[in-house]
Design a protein around this nucleic acid. Structure first.
Length: 470
RNA sequence: GCUCCCUUCGUCUAGUGGUUAGGACGCUGGCCUCUCACGCCGGUAACAGGGGUUCGAGUCCCCUAGGGAGUACCA
């Protein structure tokens, strides 16, 4: 059997991490088995579906590299087909028209609740003749007895009594088909072999299987993946920060880091933490997916992101870093080679946004010294080392790291100081704060002119400070 | 309320009747060191509770508790 999986979001918002993980699992499963991955847009809710959401979802999938082999298919373009199926069901007596009023339905629900029973439609219109000309919905005639067994790829065997299920609406009064009908028809028509989706659909599965049976069709295999909770264990929502996949790009995450994080959330392969895309495809297995919901942990994502930043080619990092520099009002063309800057910060930044912030000093002068750093390092004792450094640097022709390192060393030796006593004040002078890449690299990136200018500024600062102290 | 699902360190997880319950993130002690970071070595911390089954239960069964989903003319 050819494996065919699908991702079927409803376009009522952006692509969030939960959806992205479901899509990833589906995609991996198809890729692993040499199958096809289909994208279907479930936009039958005309009220809430928007074109912007479709674009946002497509954009998110593209960024993550979850390319689809077929689609996107839009359900709104398949209404004729749904109606054809509904008519067939109707003519076989497997579905019927219902004109029960909302009031009656509400009363029914209320009464059932009062009796401590599960609210369900009572089949009132099953044997009534409702004219096609009057306003009506169409309901699927669900079997009254027996059990529906779902052999879930993740949950194992789950069974439901048909008595618990009622005659669900498959076509609304306005003539539009509803979800449970459209998924069934689509999964069937698109020959989906494995339905991998969120576990909020587990309860819908028996209804869908019943419709499938009515259509004389073989149900696909189902795998219901648990949901993702926020850092605090509560349901993932906007207040947890970035839930939109695209927000992670904005926040400076690498797609491979997010993917790696997501694949390990609810799935594992022994003790392995790092997975390349190829490894994921090779090792992923749907029955290795956990049954329990898991909490999103930003710290671990950060760790993975740093891992990939460290590991990746500096040129690519620079390429991805560039727009974040732009966000800070910096044009990387006006300054040191961005690749070199990125390389110097690869082991220091957890995100590209952090990298941009810590790299800014290479392109623009800082406004003020960081207070703590200045207080500690720009003191009277730093004056001489800074003056000596200024002198030596201004005389230096060969502005390369090796030579720069030599200069710092020579000055330290000449003053009989440990390197730190020279490098730290120098660093604060040149960077404005106490942390940066190696002092030689730092000097190199800032450039001669700016270095001298900033050292002067530091010397002024020391002078002022001494004057203030009296 | 009813139906269905879930429950190992704070978090992600390994574990498929016999383990000193392992790894990772985080936190933390140390080493390295011109700072920060990286890296390396060490530490902290878990089987929700109660009954069974068994020579032996994190692993099997039942109950309780706690979470979650569904219960729509949403998907």
């Amino acid at each position: 059997m050819t494996v065919r999986t699908r991702f079927a979001p409803s376009p009522t918002g952006y692509l969030h991490v939960g959806g992205a993980r479901t899509a990833l699992f589906s995609w991996l499963y198809a890729r692993k088995h040499g199958g096809k991955f289909v994208l279907r847009i479930e936009d039958t809710d005309l009220e809430r579906s928007t074109a912007e959401s479709v674009n946002a979802i497509l954009e998110g999938m593209t960024w993550l590299g979850l390319e689809y082999d077929e689609g996107p298919f839009y359900q709104t373009k398949r209404f004729d087909r749904y109606h054809e199926v509904i008519e067939a069901l109707l003519s076989k007596g497997l579905a019927y028209r219902c004109n029960c009023s909302r009031e009656r339905l509400d009363d029914l629900r209320e009464a059932a609740m009062k009796r401590k029973e599960k609210p369900r439609y009572d089949g009132h219109c099953r044997n009534h003749d409702v004219s096609p000309d009057e306003p009506h919905v169409i309901r699927f005639r669900n079997p009254d007895t027996g059990v529906v067994v779902v052999d879930d790829l993740i949950r194992g065997r789950v069974s439901f009594n048909n008595e618990e299920l009622d005659d669900l609406i498959i076509r609304r009064t306005d003539g539009s088909p509803t979800y449970n009908l459209t998924v069934v028809v689509d999964d069937l028509d698109m020959q989906i072999s494995h339905v991998i989706r969120g576990d909020d659909h587990l309860n819908n599965t028996p209804r869908q299987i019943n419709i499938l049976k009515a259509l004389n069709a073989e149900p696909p295999k189902y795998g219901h993946v648990p949901m993702i909770l926020g850092d605090d264990g509560a349901r993932l929502s906007k207040r947890h920060g970035a839930v939109s996949v695209m927000q992670y790009r904005e926040d400076g995450y690498l797609p491979e880091a997010l993917l790696n994080y997501l694949v390990r959330l609810g799935w594992s392969h022994g003790d392995q933490e790092i997975f390349s895309i190829d490894e994921m495809i090779e090792l992923f297995d749907i029955d290795g997916v956990n049954k329990a919901a898991s909490s999103f942990n930003t710290d671990k994502l950060l760790w993975l992101n740093q891992h990939y930043i460290k590991q990746d080619d500096a040129k690519r990092i620079a390429h991805l870093l560039s727009p974040h520099m732009g966000d800070l009002g910096i044009d990387p063309a006006e300054g040191p080679d961005l690749t070199k800057v990125a390389e110097a910060h690869q082991e220091r930044a957890r995100t590209l946004v952090e990298m941009a912030e810590m790299s800014a000093f290479c392109y623009q002068d800082y406004d003020e010294f960081e207070e703590k750093a200045a207080k500690k390092h720009l003191r009277g004792v730093a004056r001489e080392p800074l003056e000596r450094m200024r002198e030596a640097l201004s005389a230096l022709e060969d502005w390369q790291e090796e030579a720069l390192h030599g200069v710092v060393e020579q000055v330290s030796e000449a003053l009989e100081l440990k390197m730190g006593k020279v490098a730290q004040p120098l660093r604060v002078a040149v960077v404005g704060r106490a942390a940066s890449p190696g002092i030689d690299t730092t000097l190199y990136l800032v450039g001669k002119e700016a270095c001298l200018r900033r050292i002067d500024k530091a010397l002024d600062y020391i002078t002022q400070r001494e004057a203030a102290a009296g």
